[in-house]
Design a protein around this nucleic acid. Sequence first.
DNA 1: ATGAAAGCGCTAACAT
DNA 2: ATGTTAGCGCTTTCAT
Lengths: 355, 355
Amino acid sequence: MAHRQAQQRRPSIHDVASRAGVSAATVSKVMAGVATVKPENAQRVLDAVEHLGYRVDPLASDMRRAKRRIIGAIMPEFESEFFGQMVSQLESLAEQRGYTLVAASSRESEAREKEILARMHDWRVAGVVLAPVRNEHGPAAAFMKANGMTGVLIDRVLSDDAFDTVSADSASASAEVARELIGKRHRHILVIGLGEQAATVRARLDGFRATALKLAPDVRIDVVLAETDVEPLRAQLRDYFDRGEGGGERPTAVYSLFLKGTLVALSEFRRRGWHCPNDISLVGFDDAEWMQVTWPAIAAVVQPVRQIAGHAMEALFARIEGEEGPPTARLEPCKVLMRESVGSPGNVPHSGDRQ
Amino acid sequence: MAHRQAQQRRPSIHDVASRAGVSAATVSKVMAGVATVKPENAQRVLDAVEHLGYRVDPLASDMRRAKRRIIGAIMPEFESEFFGQMVSQLESLAEQRGYTLVAASSRESEAREKEILARMHDWRVAGVVLAPVRNEHGPAAAFMKANGMTGVLIDRVLSDDAFDTVSADSASASAEVARELIGKRHRHILVIGLGEQAATVRARLDGFRATALKLAPDVRIDVVLAETDVEPLRAQLRDYFDRGEGGGERPTAVYSLFLKGTLVALSEFRRRGWHCPNDISLVGFDDAEWMQVTWPAIAAVVQPVRQIAGHAMEALFARIEGEEGPPTARLEPCKVLMRESVGSPGNVPHSGDRQ
DNA sequence: ATGAAAGCGCTAACAT
DNA sequence: ATGTTAGCGCTTTCAT
């Protein structure tokens, strides 16, 4: 029966038009909320829409318009709280403006990142929120530039000559971590990180070092950086502590510049039977829900996800709507949550300490 | 200059066609890999494509075809490892088949879930992977049914009369947890969960209870279920322990049926100064990276994310390609990781125990 | 083997 | 205020 078939094929704007006894153009106007439609006709259209269950096909609609109401989001991964929250926020903000967010994970690969970007370009997305794997100088940003895409760079970036950037204020947060640690009389601190994330790591490291040295010129800061991946870092860290054990020198605190580093540090402490904060203190950049329920609770730098997402979208939509002007570089303030994993050295005897 | 403008507007199939001296139809065939094109012409097209940097617009392409090569994925949240991994997997699998995954978070709201579904229907997605907030009987699945959408239900589902389902084998995993706990001589166990996730919670609870009672008929199993949200559960749990303290009765182990419950339990233990496993044992459904680096490491049921994602996509594409037949209901086996948070009661004196 | 023509579902000029 | 026309970029008969 014709009725049943109509159920299968979705009603198009023409179905509505003929049912309402007007043209497709008028239906289009009603759907778009254009005021110049005779109220009576508008009502007929609305009735037909209601009856048929008609909904505009956003893709067909975009096809005709200039730009598509789609925002692309590219994150290095989806598995962590930080990027999960970020995607969730971005989705919500895009939706509020009538855009759809299409998110993709580069899985920490710059090659994939570029591929995804190319695909998003194929989709003719209106704009892109890119959280690059490495930094703002990677091939993905170059691709965006070369193809005149509009976009915003977030997280592992500082500033760029072509795109607006939004990221956590790593340097200030790290300075505060330094203040806290120095204030608690730590004078030998190990900082661990991933060299790949050059800009960010540098900001965090420099921010930390500058403040620590200013407050305590005699402080010793060791640095263990792995280039690309977490596993090498684990090995390097093990090696570092092995050497330290022999020489009788061991840092009293560790500052991890990224989340996985915090996990690696914890697991290395476990292996050695060290407990926080008695044997060693620990602070990590990037907070997670579990950090406040473990024993000890893990001190962490909380990144302002909502602010980053919010300002990124704000900047992006401004550009989409044609705003000119040099790219801006925003830094959003973090919160440092000092929890039980940080103590003062010497307050409690180190178990198994040879000094 | 004309050249610069050409940079702005992406080359269309017609640009390629005229440069190659053939028609758009021929270009289309070459791009689609149709064999009936004279090799010489095909080469000219390829050269033009190369020169112009032409890429097919997938949306325009889908516009003309019947179905769009887009898969929708709806998850209750993006913030947890489980769903993060799930989206990542699904994206990868969709991509392998030349589809794009559009993921959205229902943020644990059934209302939003249905809205998202409607939007995906507007997009005319080829199929949907839905991880419902509650279970397979929610309004979202009903919407899918009513609109003849093709889809697969995952995670918080058992089976459905209209859609294929894929989920973790909660019952078997819970039975194994029961075996472990009973084997370690626990005879008073608290199970906590969220009532909302009816089917899953029931499967986990029943699987646990049946096996526990079979192995130890004298076992006492208390159950604390909050209906909708995590905070009420926290309150109920606190209340439960308060009552227990007075009566001198306290479970020796807690089995949390979902991840946030595990966090709530841990934080409640903290508040009371109880340590695992000496004061109480803990196992949680759902594993997370941090659980193996904390002290104690937290025992957990590991859900087979890859298998769930893999079989979900398999089933979905089979349906998309027209496979008929009654809906299937898959259960994927879990792994139970017994870690340090589980011990035997009485082995070590309970600190602060009044018994 | 190839191209002309006809749309997919929609919107934006332009007439009326 | 409304309808007609002309596409967006692509694919697909259907002639040739």
